[in-house]
Design a binder for these strands. Structure first.
Ligand SMILES: [Mn+2]
Ligand SMILES: [Mn+2]
Ligand SMILES: [Mn+2]
Ligand SMILES: [Mn+2]
Lengths: 232, 232
DNA sequence: AACTAAATTTATGCCAGCCTAAATTAGCCC
DNA sequence: GGGCTAATTTAGGCTGGCATAAATTTAGTT
């Protein structure tokens, strides 16, 4: 029996579009033209054009003026790209001495050039990790992904302990700063204070060190709330 | 001081053209349109068009109807691509379990996606190899390359010992067959017989095993002649 | 219900990179 | 030197992926 479905292999552009659409659907429920344009640094009319092609290829359904939604095939490809990207980042850090702030650029290009075979070899060398260095879940080769959602650090209640789980990987400076605080995915902390009006969050780390984190930054730290508050 | 020269980074197509032109110049002294077209599996008029763009970019000089020659900038880029390709092949075999017959396809895509930084990290992990798994010399990061030329096995004289040094990497089947004979770059042999009229070559391996190798195949094995013949 | 601002699409155009068909040139033979 | 052949270039066309400017739709305001 020959290959049942001949997929013509997607272009680099299409692969990046699918990833972005997946992330937008995940974060805000829908993927609108301007959001895609922003994320890819492309003009909105160009996105309209590509959306047409994606819809023709049945990777996406499009309701004009409303937005775009991944089809099952589109979602499968998006998850395949996320697996590639996250395995690559993990491998670059684990075996080639990269830091967590400089892997994204490299992976963003490599994800379009590696074969499935190479990705799986890297995954095996890494011991089939479930999360990448920034805490993001790595889809399985079969196309499933851990659906766990976390809370921004700003929503962990005062007095509670929390665990830092995940952070976006696109901003190297932010990653370096977070690392300089001693915060890595998995790190435990306790919220000592939250200032109102989008004010900073004060946390305690390693049982003694205090750090004050601005609202915008704290909002980008995806965390898990751990336990009931300790009583005074 | 800002970056002195802004190179716009070459396209995948251009990078492959430069590599092919370099190889053709090396093998036959010149690079003609049809030879480039053959090597890249592209129609000759397409090559004419690209040659024009390469000449505009001063990567190549073009004498119409005569052929094309790399400029210094073109040669530098070609060697940079060869370094990438050959370091990648070495790394895939050395650290990711690939065999020498299946690395070329992978490297052919990856060479356009890796950063210089990543290539150098791989080179360091490998101990800065000077030759790739097929015996081809790896250009230095500075752009120099071992100019040693070898002889086809068909030109090693009967009675002489020889050392197999290098083989083209594009044909997986040929590579598997050569490996099955126990021939790897570095392997020593003695020529027992050469048949005339482009006939086969008989060699002795490991001091006892005899193998008969057809002319076309033997011609593709680049070797070094080692010593004066042993006297009868 | 009409007006307005923002988002989106349509209309056009450009460039890279490929193609086929037709024209041109080079090299060779007599 | 004329004519043949093979190689090469020119002409014209197509697709993917981007852009800007203009038209359209949506949604919110009054
Ligand atoms: Mn990333
Ligand atoms: Mn990418
Ligand atoms: Mn190769
Ligand atoms: Mn290539």
């Amino acid at each position: 029996m020959p290959n049942s479905v001949d997929r013509p292999s997607l272009s680099r552009s299409i692969e990046d579009y699918l990833k972005v659409i997946y992330k937008l659907e995940l974060e805000s429920g829908s993927a609108q033209t301007s959001a895609i344009a922003d994320a890819l640094a492309i003009a909105p009319p160009s996105v309209s054009g590509m959306v047409k092609r994606l819809a023709d290829a049945e990777l996406v359904t499009h309701v004009p003026y409303r937005g775009v939604e991944l089809t099952e095939a589109g979602r499968r490809q998006a998850l395949r790209m996320l697996r590639r990207h996250r395995i690559l980042e993990s491998y670059l850090i684990g075996h080639l001495g990269y830091d967590w702030d400089d892997v994204d650029r490299e992976a963003e290009r490599l994800e379009h050039a590696v074969s499935d075979d190479l990705v799986e070899r890297m995954a095996v060398k890494l011991g089939n990790p479930t999360h990448d260095p920034h805490g993001a879940p790595i889809p399985s080769a079969a196309g499933t992904i851990d659906p766990t959602r976390y809370l921004p650090m700003t929503e962990i209640e005062v007095g509670h302990a929390g665990r830092f789980r995940m952070i976006g990987d696109a901003d190297p400076e932010r990653l370096r700063f977070i690392a300089s605080l001693g915060l890595r995915p998995g790190a435990e902390f306790r919220v000592l204070d939250r200032q109102p009006f989008n004010g900073p969050v004060t946390i305690e780390l390693d049982g003694d060190r205090k750090e004050v984190i601005g609202f915008a930054l704290a909002s980008s730290l995806q965390c898990e709330q751990l336990e009931e508050p300790t009583l005074p």
